[in-house]
Design a protein around this nucleic acid. Sequence first.
DNA 1: TCTGGGGTCCTAGGACCC
DNA 2: TCTGGGGTCCTAGGACCC
Length: 398
Amino acid sequence: MPRRRVIFHIDVNSAFLSWTAVQLMNEGHPDIRLVPSVVSGDPNDRRSIVTAASIPAKKAGIKTAEPVSLALRKCPGLIVVKGDWEWYRRCSEGFIEICRRYSPILQQFSIDECFIDMTLRNWGEDPADVATRLKDEIKNTLGFTVNVGIGSNKLLAKMASEFEKPDKVHTLWQEEVPEKMWPLDVRELLWVGKKTEEKLKMYGIHTIGDLAGRSIGSLTRLVGKKFAAQMLENANGRDDSPVETEVPEAKSISAERTFPNDIGTEKDIDRALFNVACIVAHRLRRARFHTACISVFIKYRDFSVVQKQRQISQPTDITAVILNEARAMVSDIWDRESPIRQIGLGVSKLTHENVVQMSLFEDPQMEYFREWDRKYDEDKSRNEDARLLAYERKKHND
DNA sequence: TCTGGGGTCCTAGGACCC
DNA sequence: TCTGGGGTCCTAGGACCC
Protein backbone atom coordinates (compact mmCIF):
# COMPACT_ATOMS: atom_id res chain seq x y z
CA MET A 1 0.00 0.00 0.00
CA PRO A 2 1.48 3.35 -0.94
CA ARG A 3 1.91 5.31 2.20
CA ARG A 4 1.66 9.04 2.23
CA ARG A 5 4.85 11.02 2.22
CA VAL A 6 5.91 12.90 5.32
CA ILE A 7 8.21 15.83 4.63
CA PHE A 8 9.68 18.25 7.16
CA HIS A 9 10.89 21.71 6.22
CA ILE A 10 13.23 23.23 8.80
CA ASP A 11 13.71 26.99 8.65
CA VAL A 12 15.95 28.96 11.01
CA ASN A 13 14.05 31.94 12.46
CA SER A 14 15.61 35.24 11.28
CA ALA A 15 18.73 33.20 10.57
CA PHE A 16 21.46 35.80 10.28
CA LEU A 17 20.08 37.80 13.17
CA SER A 18 19.73 34.75 15.43
CA TRP A 19 23.19 33.52 14.56
CA THR A 20 24.76 36.89 15.24
CA ALA A 21 22.84 37.06 18.53
CA VAL A 22 24.31 33.72 19.61
CA GLN A 23 27.78 34.88 18.59
CA LEU A 24 27.47 38.11 20.59
CA MET A 25 26.07 36.30 23.61
CA ASN A 26 29.07 33.96 23.56
CA GLU A 27 31.16 37.10 23.97
CA GLY A 28 29.05 38.25 26.92
CA HIS A 29 26.77 40.72 25.12
CA PRO A 30 23.03 40.92 25.74
CA ASP A 31 20.61 39.14 23.39
CA ILE A 32 19.94 41.40 20.39
CA ARG A 33 16.89 39.31 19.46
CA LEU A 34 15.02 41.01 22.30
CA VAL A 35 15.60 44.58 21.07
CA PRO A 36 15.19 46.34 17.71
CA SER A 37 18.25 45.21 15.76
CA VAL A 38 19.32 44.32 12.23
CA VAL A 39 22.16 42.58 10.47
CA SER A 40 23.54 44.29 7.38
CA GLY A 41 26.52 44.13 5.07
CA ASP A 42 28.87 46.97 5.88
CA PRO A 43 26.96 49.34 8.20
CA ASN A 44 29.25 52.18 7.12
CA ASP A 45 28.32 51.79 3.47
CA ARG A 46 25.50 54.22 2.79
CA ARG A 47 23.99 51.80 0.31
CA SER A 48 23.91 48.75 2.52
CA ILE A 49 20.57 47.09 3.18
CA VAL A 50 18.93 45.11 5.97
CA THR A 51 19.81 41.43 5.65
CA ALA A 52 17.82 40.30 8.69
CA ALA A 53 15.73 42.06 11.33
CA SER A 54 14.76 41.07 14.89
CA ILE A 55 11.09 40.69 15.75
CA PRO A 56 11.08 43.99 17.74
CA ALA A 57 12.65 45.67 14.69
CA LYS A 58 9.96 44.22 12.45
CA LYS A 59 7.35 45.55 14.86
CA ALA A 60 8.90 48.99 14.37
CA GLY A 61 8.12 48.65 10.65
CA ILE A 62 11.55 47.58 9.45
CA LYS A 63 11.61 45.20 6.54
CA THR A 64 14.26 42.90 5.15
CA ALA A 65 16.06 44.31 2.09
CA GLU A 66 15.30 47.94 2.81
CA PRO A 67 18.18 50.43 3.11
CA VAL A 68 19.80 50.63 6.54
CA SER A 69 19.53 54.43 6.33
CA LEU A 70 15.75 54.14 6.01
CA ALA A 71 15.56 51.62 8.87
CA LEU A 72 17.51 54.02 11.11
CA ARG A 73 15.04 56.78 10.35
CA LYS A 74 12.15 54.52 11.28
CA CYS A 75 13.84 53.43 14.49
CA PRO A 76 16.61 55.76 15.74
CA GLY A 77 17.79 53.43 18.55
CA LEU A 78 18.24 50.53 16.15
CA ILE A 79 21.30 48.32 16.68
CA VAL A 80 23.06 47.60 13.38
CA VAL A 81 25.53 44.69 13.28
CA LYS A 82 27.74 43.51 10.44
CA GLY A 83 27.21 39.90 9.42
CA ASP A 84 29.97 37.30 9.83
CA TRP A 85 29.80 34.78 7.01
CA GLU A 86 32.31 32.33 8.49
CA TRP A 87 30.20 32.10 11.64
CA TYR A 88 27.01 31.64 9.60
CA ARG A 89 28.59 28.78 7.70
CA ARG A 90 29.36 27.04 10.97
CA CYS A 91 25.89 27.59 12.40
CA SER A 92 24.43 26.24 9.19
CA GLU A 93 26.58 23.11 9.32
CA GLY A 94 25.57 22.58 12.94
CA PHE A 95 21.86 22.64 12.31
CA ILE A 96 22.08 20.55 9.13
CA GLU A 97 24.02 17.92 11.05
CA ILE A 98 21.28 17.63 13.66
CA CYS A 99 18.56 17.43 10.98
CA ARG A 100 20.47 14.67 9.22
CA ARG A 101 20.29 12.55 12.37
CA TYR A 102 16.51 12.49 11.89
CA SER A 103 16.64 11.45 8.24
CA PRO A 104 19.49 10.85 5.77
CA ILE A 105 17.22 11.96 2.93
CA LEU A 106 18.04 15.64 3.33
CA GLN A 107 18.07 18.48 0.84
CA GLN A 108 19.71 21.72 1.83
CA PHE A 109 17.60 24.44 0.23
CA SER A 110 19.67 27.42 1.32
CA ILE A 111 22.08 28.32 4.10
CA ASP A 112 19.24 28.33 6.64
CA GLU A 113 16.65 25.89 5.29
CA CYS A 114 16.42 22.20 4.54
CA PHE A 115 13.90 19.50 3.73
CA ILE A 116 14.03 16.01 5.22
CA ASP A 117 11.99 13.06 4.02
CA MET A 118 10.54 11.34 7.10
CA THR A 119 8.29 8.92 5.19
CA LEU A 120 10.25 5.81 6.08
CA ARG A 121 10.38 6.47 9.80
CA ASN A 122 8.42 4.02 11.78
CA TRP A 123 5.82 6.32 13.24
CA GLY A 124 4.81 5.13 16.64
CA GLU A 125 4.04 8.71 17.47
CA ASP A 126 2.69 11.91 16.06
CA PRO A 127 5.05 13.48 13.47
CA ALA A 128 4.52 16.79 15.27
CA ASP A 129 6.09 15.32 18.42
CA VAL A 130 9.17 14.24 16.49
CA ALA A 131 9.39 17.70 14.92
CA THR A 132 9.15 19.28 18.35
CA ARG A 133 12.02 17.13 19.58
CA LEU A 134 14.08 18.16 16.55
CA LYS A 135 13.45 21.87 17.03
CA ASP A 136 14.18 21.65 20.78
CA GLU A 137 17.39 19.75 20.18
CA ILE A 138 18.60 22.51 17.83
CA LYS A 139 17.62 25.17 20.34
CA ASN A 140 19.29 23.44 23.28
CA THR A 141 22.53 22.52 21.56
CA LEU A 142 23.05 25.48 19.23
CA GLY A 143 21.16 28.30 20.94
CA PHE A 144 18.88 29.40 18.10
CA THR A 145 15.31 28.52 17.19
CA VAL A 146 13.75 27.05 14.05
CA ASN A 147 10.28 26.51 12.67
CA VAL A 148 9.41 23.04 11.41
CA GLY A 149 6.73 22.66 8.77
CA ILE A 150 5.23 19.21 8.22
CA GLY A 151 3.38 18.24 5.07
CA SER A 152 2.78 15.50 2.55
CA ASN A 153 5.13 17.16 0.07
CA LYS A 154 7.88 19.80 -0.03
CA LEU A 155 5.58 22.65 -0.99
CA LEU A 156 3.17 22.04 1.89
CA ALA A 157 6.02 21.55 4.37
CA LYS A 158 7.58 24.82 3.27
CA MET A 159 4.30 26.71 3.42
CA ALA A 160 3.69 25.27 6.90
CA SER A 161 7.04 26.46 8.22
CA GLU A 162 6.01 30.02 7.27
CA PHE A 163 3.06 29.98 9.65
CA GLU A 164 3.41 31.59 13.07
CA LYS A 165 7.03 32.16 14.17
CA PRO A 166 9.34 31.65 16.01
CA ASP A 167 10.10 28.28 17.56
CA LYS A 168 6.95 26.56 16.28
CA VAL A 169 5.85 23.32 14.61
CA HIS A 170 2.96 23.41 12.12
CA THR A 171 1.36 20.82 9.87
CA LEU A 172 -0.18 21.33 6.46
CA TRP A 173 -1.54 18.04 5.20
CA GLN A 174 -3.34 17.80 1.88
CA GLU A 175 -6.74 17.72 3.60
CA GLU A 176 -5.88 20.88 5.55
CA VAL A 177 -5.23 22.89 2.39
CA PRO A 178 -8.73 24.46 2.08
CA GLU A 179 -8.75 25.51 5.72
CA LYS A 180 -5.12 26.56 6.25
CA MET A 181 -3.81 27.58 2.84
CA TRP A 182 -6.65 28.80 0.67
CA PRO A 183 -7.49 31.85 2.83
CA LEU A 184 -3.90 33.14 2.53
CA ASP A 185 -3.01 36.05 0.26
CA VAL A 186 -1.85 34.78 -3.13
CA ARG A 187 1.52 36.42 -2.52
CA GLU A 188 2.19 33.87 0.24
CA LEU A 189 2.31 31.06 -2.32
CA LEU A 190 5.81 29.89 -3.17
CA TRP A 191 7.05 31.35 -6.51
CA VAL A 192 4.42 34.10 -6.53
CA GLY A 193 6.46 37.28 -6.28
CA LYS A 194 5.61 40.96 -6.58
CA LYS A 195 5.02 41.04 -10.35
CA THR A 196 2.88 37.93 -10.44
CA GLU A 197 0.90 39.17 -7.45
CA GLU A 198 0.06 42.37 -9.35
CA LYS A 199 -1.07 40.47 -12.43
CA LEU A 200 -3.20 38.03 -10.45
CA LYS A 201 -4.87 40.72 -8.39
CA MET A 202 -5.74 42.66 -11.51
CA TYR A 203 -7.77 39.65 -12.51
CA GLY A 204 -9.50 39.40 -9.16
CA ILE A 205 -7.33 36.61 -7.80
CA HIS A 206 -6.52 37.64 -4.23
CA THR A 207 -6.21 34.46 -2.21
CA ILE A 208 -4.57 31.12 -2.90
CA GLY A 209 -8.09 29.69 -2.92
CA ASP A 210 -9.09 32.09 -5.72
CA LEU A 211 -6.10 30.86 -7.69
CA ALA A 212 -6.89 27.18 -7.06
CA GLY A 213 -10.30 27.60 -8.69
CA ARG A 214 -9.07 29.16 -11.94
CA SER A 215 -8.71 27.40 -15.26
CA ILE A 216 -5.29 26.72 -16.72
CA GLY A 217 -6.24 28.65 -19.86
CA SER A 218 -6.90 31.95 -18.15
CA LEU A 219 -3.70 31.69 -16.12
CA THR A 220 -1.62 30.78 -19.16
CA ARG A 221 -2.52 34.10 -20.74
CA LEU A 222 -1.21 35.86 -17.65
CA VAL A 223 2.05 34.09 -16.89
CA GLY A 224 2.79 31.56 -19.62
CA LYS A 225 2.03 27.88 -19.87
CA LYS A 226 4.67 26.34 -17.66
CA PHE A 227 4.34 28.70 -14.73
CA ALA A 228 0.53 28.62 -14.96
CA ALA A 229 0.50 24.84 -14.67
CA GLN A 230 2.88 24.88 -11.73
CA MET A 231 1.01 27.65 -9.93
CA LEU A 232 -2.27 25.80 -10.28
CA GLU A 233 -0.76 22.59 -8.93
CA ASN A 234 0.80 24.45 -6.00
CA ALA A 235 -2.38 26.37 -5.17
CA ASN A 236 -4.09 23.00 -4.83
CA GLY A 237 -1.32 21.74 -2.58
CA ARG A 238 0.11 19.34 -5.14
CA ASP A 239 3.84 18.84 -5.62
CA ASP A 240 5.56 15.56 -6.38
CA SER A 241 9.15 16.78 -6.48
CA PRO A 242 11.48 14.53 -4.47
CA VAL A 243 13.81 15.56 -1.67
CA GLU A 244 17.06 15.83 -3.65
CA THR A 245 20.03 14.58 -1.68
CA GLU A 246 22.60 15.29 -4.40
CA VAL A 247 24.15 18.74 -4.25
CA PRO A 248 23.77 20.11 -7.78
CA GLU A 249 26.84 21.45 -9.55
CA ALA A 250 27.02 25.21 -10.04
CA LYS A 251 25.73 26.40 -13.41
CA SER A 252 27.07 29.92 -13.20
CA ILE A 253 29.39 32.06 -11.10
CA SER A 254 29.06 35.82 -10.84
CA ALA A 255 30.13 38.84 -8.84
CA GLU A 256 28.93 42.41 -8.83
CA ARG A 257 29.82 45.71 -7.21
CA THR A 258 27.58 48.58 -6.24
CA PHE A 259 29.49 51.83 -5.99
CA PRO A 260 29.11 54.08 -2.94
CA ASN A 261 28.50 56.85 -5.46
CA ASP A 262 27.49 56.33 -9.08
CA ILE A 263 30.49 56.39 -11.40
CA GLY A 264 31.01 57.59 -14.93
CA THR A 265 34.60 57.38 -16.03
CA GLU A 266 36.28 54.64 -18.04
CA LYS A 267 38.91 54.36 -15.35
CA ASP A 268 36.43 53.65 -12.56
CA ILE A 269 34.62 51.12 -14.70
CA ASP A 270 37.83 49.39 -15.63
CA ARG A 271 38.95 49.14 -12.05
CA ALA A 272 35.62 47.66 -10.96
CA LEU A 273 35.65 45.18 -13.84
CA PHE A 274 39.16 44.11 -12.92
CA ASN A 275 38.07 43.47 -9.33
CA VAL A 276 35.03 41.37 -10.19
CA ALA A 277 36.93 39.50 -12.91
CA CYS A 278 39.59 38.50 -10.37
CA ILE A 279 36.95 37.25 -7.96
CA VAL A 280 34.93 35.31 -10.52
CA ALA A 281 37.94 33.73 -12.21
CA HIS A 282 39.41 32.73 -8.86
CA ARG A 283 36.19 31.01 -7.83
CA LEU A 284 36.06 29.35 -11.24
CA ARG A 285 39.54 27.90 -10.81
CA ARG A 286 38.91 26.85 -7.23
CA ALA A 287 35.90 24.84 -8.44
CA ARG A 288 38.03 23.43 -11.28
CA PHE A 289 35.74 24.80 -13.95
CA HIS A 290 36.30 26.44 -17.30
CA THR A 291 33.74 28.81 -18.77
CA ALA A 292 32.46 29.00 -22.34
CA CYS A 293 30.18 31.99 -21.85
CA ILE A 294 30.94 35.36 -20.31
CA SER A 295 28.39 38.00 -19.42
CA VAL A 296 28.36 41.53 -18.07
CA PHE A 297 25.68 43.88 -16.90
CA ILE A 298 25.39 47.52 -16.00
CA LYS A 299 22.76 48.96 -13.67
CA TYR A 300 22.13 52.66 -14.11
CA ARG A 301 21.02 55.17 -11.52
CA ASP A 302 17.35 54.54 -12.35
CA PHE A 303 17.85 50.79 -11.81
CA SER A 304 17.46 49.96 -15.48
CA VAL A 305 19.77 47.16 -16.54
CA VAL A 306 21.58 46.45 -19.77
CA GLN A 307 23.45 43.24 -20.27
CA LYS A 308 25.46 41.34 -22.81
CA GLN A 309 26.76 37.82 -23.01
CA ARG A 310 29.06 36.14 -25.45
CA GLN A 311 30.22 32.59 -26.00
CA ILE A 312 33.87 31.93 -26.49
CA SER A 313 35.25 29.17 -28.67
CA GLN A 314 37.96 28.05 -26.23
CA PRO A 315 36.71 27.56 -22.66
CA THR A 316 38.96 29.33 -20.19
CA ASP A 317 39.66 30.02 -16.53
CA ILE A 318 42.18 32.80 -17.15
CA THR A 319 41.40 36.13 -15.52
CA ALA A 320 42.89 38.18 -18.33
CA VAL A 321 40.85 36.44 -21.02
CA ILE A 322 37.62 36.87 -19.08
CA LEU A 323 38.43 40.48 -18.29
CA ASN A 324 39.20 41.22 -21.92
CA GLU A 325 35.86 39.90 -23.13
CA ALA A 326 34.08 41.73 -20.34
CA ARG A 327 35.72 45.05 -21.24
CA ALA A 328 34.72 44.74 -24.87
CA MET A 329 31.12 43.95 -23.97
CA VAL A 330 30.81 46.75 -21.43
CA SER A 331 32.13 49.11 -24.03
CA ASP A 332 29.38 47.87 -26.39
CA ILE A 333 26.49 48.38 -24.00
CA TRP A 334 27.44 51.45 -21.97
CA ASP A 335 25.84 54.60 -23.36
CA ARG A 336 28.87 56.59 -22.13
CA GLU A 337 26.68 59.23 -20.54
CA SER A 338 24.61 57.77 -17.71
CA PRO A 339 26.33 57.31 -14.37
CA ILE A 340 26.61 53.68 -13.36
CA ARG A 341 25.32 52.37 -10.04
CA GLN A 342 26.40 48.77 -10.28
CA ILE A 343 28.46 46.58 -12.55
CA GLY A 344 28.56 42.80 -12.71
CA LEU A 345 30.36 39.96 -14.41
CA GLY A 346 29.28 36.35 -14.71
CA VAL A 347 30.44 33.13 -16.29
CA SER A 348 28.26 30.20 -17.36
CA LYS A 349 28.40 27.16 -19.65
CA LEU A 350 30.79 25.67 -17.14
CA THR A 351 32.81 22.59 -18.06
CA HIS A 352 35.36 20.60 -16.09
CA GLU A 353 38.86 21.27 -17.19
CA ASN A 354 39.82 17.67 -17.83
CA VAL A 355 37.44 17.56 -20.78
CA VAL A 356 38.89 20.74 -22.26
CA GLN A 357 41.14 20.46 -25.27
CA MET A 358 44.24 22.58 -24.94
CA SER A 359 45.15 24.39 -28.08
CA LEU A 360 48.52 23.18 -29.30
CA PHE A 361 49.82 26.53 -30.37
CA GLU A 362 48.93 28.72 -27.49
CA ASP A 363 49.66 32.39 -27.40
CA PRO A 364 52.90 32.73 -25.38
CA GLN A 365 51.27 35.55 -23.48
CA MET A 366 48.92 32.98 -21.96
CA GLU A 367 51.74 31.48 -19.96
CA TYR A 368 52.29 34.85 -18.33
CA PHE A 369 48.57 35.17 -17.58
CA ARG A 370 48.48 31.70 -16.05
CA GLU A 371 51.44 32.52 -13.85
CA TRP A 372 49.70 35.69 -12.72
CA ASP A 373 46.62 33.65 -11.77
CA ARG A 374 48.71 31.09 -9.91
CA LYS A 375 50.24 33.84 -7.79
CA TYR A 376 46.86 35.38 -7.20
CA ASP A 377 45.35 32.06 -6.06
CA GLU A 378 48.32 31.35 -3.77
CA ASP A 379 47.98 34.73 -2.20
CA LYS A 380 44.26 34.31 -1.70
CA SER A 381 44.57 30.95 -0.01
CA ARG A 382 47.36 32.25 2.24
CA ASN A 383 45.17 35.12 3.34
CA GLU A 384 42.26 32.77 3.85
CA ASP A 385 44.36 30.46 6.05
CA ALA A 386 45.58 33.41 8.11
CA ARG A 387 42.04 34.64 8.53
CA LEU A 388 40.76 31.26 9.68
CA LEU A 389 43.65 30.90 12.09
CA ALA A 390 42.93 34.29 13.62
CA TYR A 391 39.29 33.26 13.85
CA GLU A 392 40.14 30.05 15.73
CA ARG A 393 42.50 31.91 18.08
CA LYS A 394 39.87 34.46 18.91
CA LYS A 395 37.33 31.74 19.59
CA HIS A 396 39.85 29.91 21.77
CA ASN A 397 40.60 33.01 23.82
CA ASP A 398 36.93 33.83 24.42
C1' DT B 1 20.16 59.73 3.46
C1' DC B 2 16.30 54.47 -1.37
C1' DT B 3 16.86 50.02 -2.91
C1' DG B 4 23.00 44.14 -1.86
C1' DG B 5 24.74 40.00 -3.64
C1' DG B 6 24.42 35.44 -5.45
C1' DG B 7 21.90 32.19 -7.75
C1' DT B 8 18.01 29.38 -10.93
C1' DC B 9 14.72 29.00 -14.54
C1' DC B 10 11.67 30.57 -18.38
C1' DT B 11 10.36 33.04 -22.67
C1' DA B 12 10.57 35.38 -27.00
C1' DG B 13 12.76 36.48 -31.11
C1' DG B 14 16.35 35.97 -34.54
C1' DA B 15 19.80 33.22 -37.08
C1' DC B 16 20.69 29.22 -39.36
C1' DC B 17 20.05 24.56 -41.10
C1' DC B 18 17.57 21.05 -43.66
C1' DT C 1 10.24 36.41 -58.34
C1' DC C 2 6.30 35.51 -54.22
C1' DT C 3 6.67 30.75 -50.99
C1' DG C 4 6.70 26.37 -45.77
C1' DG C 5 7.85 24.36 -41.44
C1' DG C 6 10.53 22.15 -37.84
C1' DG C 7 14.50 22.02 -34.95
C1' DT C 8 18.36 23.98 -32.51
C1' DC C 9 21.30 27.44 -30.81
C1' DC C 10 22.09 31.99 -29.13
C1' DT C 11 20.97 36.39 -26.85
C1' DA C 12 18.34 39.67 -24.08
C1' DG C 13 15.24 40.29 -20.63
C1' DG C 14 12.49 39.17 -16.74
C1' DA C 15 10.68 36.53 -12.86
C1' DC C 16 11.61 34.14 -8.64
C1' DC C 17 14.36 32.39 -4.44
C1' DC C 18 17.30 33.30 0.03
